[in-house]
């Protein structure tokens, strides 16, 4: 199939960007979206032009590196998958595809479609862990965990940190990302020990970084490639409220 691509080009974070139109021909329906961009890039390189920069790595939907806001949707038109897992059969011959980078103040554009998502790491560094050291740990089976809790924790832990929730949210809120980590630990006895402190620290960091507020629009859940539930956000709100009310210290 032949396609017109309308791609955001921006040389660096310091200069302004604009949309540039490209044509690609004879794209197989079996190709993945990123392979389609590879083809475009190889043709640009052959012509001596700068290829389009985009983040990608594992190409099997787990590393969370790929992004791309495609025709108004993070990770494109299909549900429950990342951009790298989307195949061109989701598009029609002759279609124009608009490809934009994630847009959010805490995700500044680095180049073209690449954005800086280190703010997510900063949130994790603020409290997204259990403070255990290596070694000196009791036997793994010494604390039984109800299967349902383990399953819910796993549902939340499936987050790949891609940032689609922020990209999809009309407020560029990171609540789904933060709540997924808060929930995972809140559901497990290992994480309960620091639960009050964790939720306060992580939320404070999230706010400080300039993410928007949650208005319960649920676009995040709809676009999350791992289909993480907004019930995690409610759980975080609960955790936060109780931490604020009874915690011995404010963070």
């Amino acid at each position: 199939m032949d396609l017109t691509l309308k791609i955001w080009r921006q040389a660096s974070s310091k200069v302004k960007g604009q949309f540039v139109n490209y044509q690609v021909q004879n794209i197989s329906a079996e190709a993945s979206f990123l392979e389609m961009l590879d083809i475009l890039n190889e043709s640009l390189v052959a012509k001596g032009e700068e290829p389009v920069a985009f983040d990608h790595d594992c190409r099997e939907g787990i590393c969370g590196a790929c992004s791309l806001y495609i025709n108004g949707r993070p990770h494109g038109p299909d549900r429950g998958i990342t951009t790298c897992q989307m195949h061109m059969r989701n598009f029609k011959h002759g279609e124009t595809i608009i490809i934009e980078p994630w847009r959010a103040k805490p995700f500044p554009v680095i180049k073209d479609l690449m954005v800086d998502r280190s703010s997510f790491d900063e949130i994790i560094q603020a409290g997204g862990f259990v403070s255990v050291r290596t070694g000196g740990i009791p036997d793994a089976n010494s604390i039984p965990i109800p299967r349902r809790n383990a399953e819910l924790a796993m549902d939340a832990a499936a987050c790949i940190g891609c940032g689609a929730c922020v990209a999809a949210c009309k407020n560029a809120s990171a609540m789904l990302f933060v709540s997924a980590k808060v929930s995972q630990f809140a559901l497990l006895p290992q994480g309960r020990i620091e639960a009050q402190e964790r939720v306060q620290r992580m939320v404070a960091k999230m706010d400080e970084l300039g993410f928007g507020n949650c208005t319960n629009t649920y676009a995040c859940e709809a676009e999350c490639p791992k289909e993480i539930s907004v019930s995690n956000i409610a759980r975080m709100n609960r955790e936060f409220l109780s931490a604020k009310l009874i915690s011995h210290k404010e963070f």
């Binding site: 793994a140 965990i145 383990a150 796993m154 995972q184």
Partner: peptide, 22 residues
């Protein structure tokens, strides 16, 4: 064996049976 202990303590949600054990 220590690896499993370590990971569980970190909050890795390994699969569990209905009795809550790994």
């Amino acid at each position: 064996n220590s690896i499993i202990d370590q990971c569980v303590a970190q909050g890795v949600p390994f699969a569990r049976d209905y009795g809550g054990l790994l």
